[in-house]
Amino acid sequence: MPHVDAAFNLAAWLVRNPADAEDVMQDAMLRAYRFFPSCREDTARAWVLRIVRNACYDWLAAKRGHVVVGFADVDPLDTDGARFTADVFSGPAEDPESILLRENRRDLLNAMVAALPEEFREVLVLREMEELSYKEIADIVGIPQGTVMSRLSRARAMLMRDWKARDDHS
């Protein structure tokens, strides 16, 4: 599979667990394999990322037992997201409060992104980490470019607001 690093990074950010991300990659690989010949090199990255993204949502839906999570249910800094990033990047698990106490900018910002609702998280990761154009992101996510624009704007506004709120506390 080409672009395996970008694909793995996206999967890890969407399912928020590297071991699960590897499972998702297996599934995505099988799908990609079946359709690869129909793909041109210049669009290969977006195409691979779209397959991985869809595999992530299928995996998440299966894990949730098809329960639809509403907006209101998403904690702005849910502990899953915070614990995941803490696990991976700074060794033993830490709760958001102690991360905050250490004032570790890197951990806190990563935890805040991990805690974004997924429709905002995916566009942000594709833009800030893969530096894809709005058009490419629109193709991957399957939404109009205008929606990419507004979701990115909202994602950044949410992050900045929380970031400032934390800053004011300390």
Partner: peptide, 24 residues
């Protein structure tokens, strides 16, 4: 700031080989 701190998750060593091996 965000771009400079966001963690890029590295594909584990050998993932590519394992993926290839899993194909029919």
């Amino acid at each position: 700031t965000l771009r400079s701190v966001l963690t890029r998750h590295q594909a584990p060593d050998g993932l590519h080989a394992r993926l290839m091996a899993s194909l029919p």
